[in-house]
Design a protein around this nucleic acid. Structure first.
Lengths: 214, 214
DNA sequence: AGTAGCTTGTAACATTTATCACTTATCAAT
DNA sequence: ATTGATAAGTGATAAATGTTACAAGCTACT
């Protein structure tokens, strides 16, 4: 059972989504976790034994290949849950993704057993779970679109705009190297492409900082 | 209500997955559809008002961008359902994918209303739906891996091997042009890369036919 | 046999992305 | 102010993929 402050946060974000009784149950069985920006929340091949609900902050979901190269799959915002983790959790398989806090975040974890229980009991839970899967599938399709159909300059611009939308701030604090890691390309390519975007008047570059203009 | 032959087919494929009572309900409310290879089953932006279950055959799921360029997302086999269609169906949104029969196939369609009803009623249905989503998410991750981390020769070889596994036949009947469409590249690139794979002893090329050796 | 249409092979060239090497800029600590 | 570390800019070159153009082979049909 979690404390009063956390309870009010759950109500803030989920009272319009879940019925009262379900919220009470969530408050009873879940625990709250606070994490710092850049904390590694879930690693590849880790077993995830709970359902995470993001209460505040933002989380980056990445895929890593056998050579340690990475690529962003999507971001989670408050109100989101990580659909990939249902699978890993339900059938004892291991996580296929990495989750890294994009900023300081609060997450409540619900023990796995309630996933199925609440599907029977609460219509809003069924809707939430199916909706979560759909949102994730659509994000994946979006990522595939990006990789299959777009060139570097467009991909990069999309990445920057996604971050701006996520953080509600058109100034991004990061390095070219970090962007390169997220997009599975090299720092040189990122620097060059960013410079082109700047010349096109779409962004403005500073040290450790990118301002997205359009 | 569907006929006797179809009923026995449902039992063949799903009696180990679904409890008896659920199978009876499925038989009562679903309808059977037979399609020919290369039939377009679902187009982009189409509303899908049913849950499809694949009884026999194979179906190719594609994503198309605004310029009409395509890329394969994954294949469906017998026993599979198209998780993407739940979303489109549930919330009145439109299909984000195209589905094309890879070979002659039989599909039963279940009216949408039962998705939620049966989630409450049958444990095996809950497991099936969640499992379907997980399988699809994993297929998407696989597709993203392919696009993000692999070069053309590996991508092409993987594509050929996927088809071999799907059709249980290491001879693929197709043209280089069709492969190019599926992979969002050009015919010339496919021909060139296939020739390299042949020189490496991995495949053997014929007119309208590719034999996958390893 | 002749022809039309589709399929495949391949050379030449263009574009995109990746890599290497080096320079310059910025910032923090002393 | 000097130094050392990190970040960013850029030219040169390589590798991968895409494009254009054309030749040659196979198939079906008359």
């Amino acid at each position: 059972m979690i404390n009063k402050i956390a309870r009010s946060k759950i109500r803030d974000h989920y009272s319009s989504v879940f019925e009262d009784e379900l919220i009470k149950e969530i408050e009873e069985v879940s625990s709250l976790m606070s994490v710092k920006a850049n904390d590694l929340l879930i690693d590849m091949n880790e077993e995830v034994a709970f359902i995470p609900l993001l209460i505040s902050g933002a989380v980056k979901i990445l895929r890593e290949d056998s050579n340690g190269e990475e690529i962003i799959l999507y971001f989670l915002e408050k109100g989101d849950t990580c659909a990939s983790s249902f699978g890993t959790s339900m059938y004892g398989t291991k996580s296929k993704i990495k989750a890294i806090a994009e900023r300081d975040s609060e997450i409540i974890s619900i023990p796995l057993e309630f996933l199925d229980k609440w599907l029977v009991k609460y219509k809003t839970w069924r809707t939430f779970i199916l909706e979560s899967y759909n949102v994730r599938l659509n994000e994946m399709i979006d990522t595939i679109d990006t990789l299959a159909f777009m060139k570097m300059d467009q991909r990069l611009l999309k990445h920057l705009r996604d971050r701006v939308n996520l953080l509600k701030d058109n100034t991004i604090i990061t390095t070219h190297q970090n962007i390169a890691y997220d997009m599975n390309t090299s720092r040189v390519v990122v620097s060059r492409t960013l410079k082109e975007l700047e010349r096109s008047g779409l962004i403005k570059l500073y040290r450790n900082k990118i301002e997205v203009l359009k």
